[in-house]
């Protein structure tokens, strides 16, 4: 349905906004490398089922997400490494990995490798933006492109929420994916303060600065 498609394209747009910013400004300042690595982990553990994905739509998006994320990490770790400031990117990701790992082991749908890794990836994605938001907090401001990147990334999962509501009412056989829904709501909540600042500042064409 439209919400889901818009969400997936918003996700794709966020990746291309980020790529554009890094290549255009030849710098990855203001971007958390830790968050990008977490997203790489999210895609790898989420798309282990890539080889037998039945829908071409999903297959293409999975390949796009994995390949573009690999490229972003290459750019940040090799090409523009000098513009990477590790002592601004100090969020303790082990807490996030522990959080996702614990929930994946406690409440997977089934105790199979695929399901446990999938649950891990869903929970990790819900908190993977934290190092990025934390870095934003520390620098106090961000380039417009970085703000657009975070906004598009936040919108992707936010749009999945109406998608789930729509499916609940329109597909009688649809069973609610409680893990994805819970984590998706948590993820969207984590963006809420950012969205507020983004909406009030950037929509007025002002620079993105924290109050």
């Amino acid at each position: 349905n439209i919400f889901r498609v818009l969400g997936d394209f918003s996700h794709l747009a966020s990746i291309f906004i980020l790529l554009h910013k890094i290549q255009q400004l030849k710098s990855c300042s203001g971007i958390s490398f830790k968050s990008q690595v977490l997203y790489m982990l999210v895609y790898i553990t989420r798309y282990l089922d890539l080889p037998w994905t039945s829908s071409p739509y999903n297959f293409i998006f999975k390949v796009l997400f994995i390949s573009s994320e690999l490229y972003i990490i290459y750019l940040m770790a090799r090409a523009y490494k000098p513009t990477n400031d590790p002592n601004l990117d100090t969020f303790h990701v082990e807490f996030l990995l522990g959080f996702a790992g614990l929930l994946a082991l406690l409440f997977p749908y089934k105790y199979t490798i695929l399901e446990v890794f999938w649950a891990f990836s869903i929970w990790l994605e819900s908190v993977a933006i934290l190092p990025q938001l934390f870095m934003l907090q520390r620098t106090g401001e961000a380039e417009a492109m970085t703000a657009h990147y975070i906004a598009a990334l936040g919108m992707y999962r936010a749009l999945y929420i109406p998608n789930w509501i729509y499916r609940y009412f329109s597909e009688p056989t649809h069973k609610v994916d409680t893990i994805a829904v819970t984590a998706g709501i948590l993820q969207t909540i984590l963006y809420s303060d950012f969205f507020w600042i983004y909406y009030t500042k950037v929509m007025r064409g002002e620079k993105f600065k924290l109050p």
């Binding site: 889901r4 997936d8 996700h11 989420r46 089922d49 037998w52 994905t53 039945s54 829908s55 999903n58 998006f61 999975k62 997400f65 089934k110 399901e115 999938w118 999945y160 998608n163 069973k175 994916d177 994805a180």
Partner: peptide, 10 residues
Amino acid sequence: RREKDEKDEL
């Protein structure tokens, strides 16, 4: 019955 297990969302 298609295995519902297959994740149909990204």
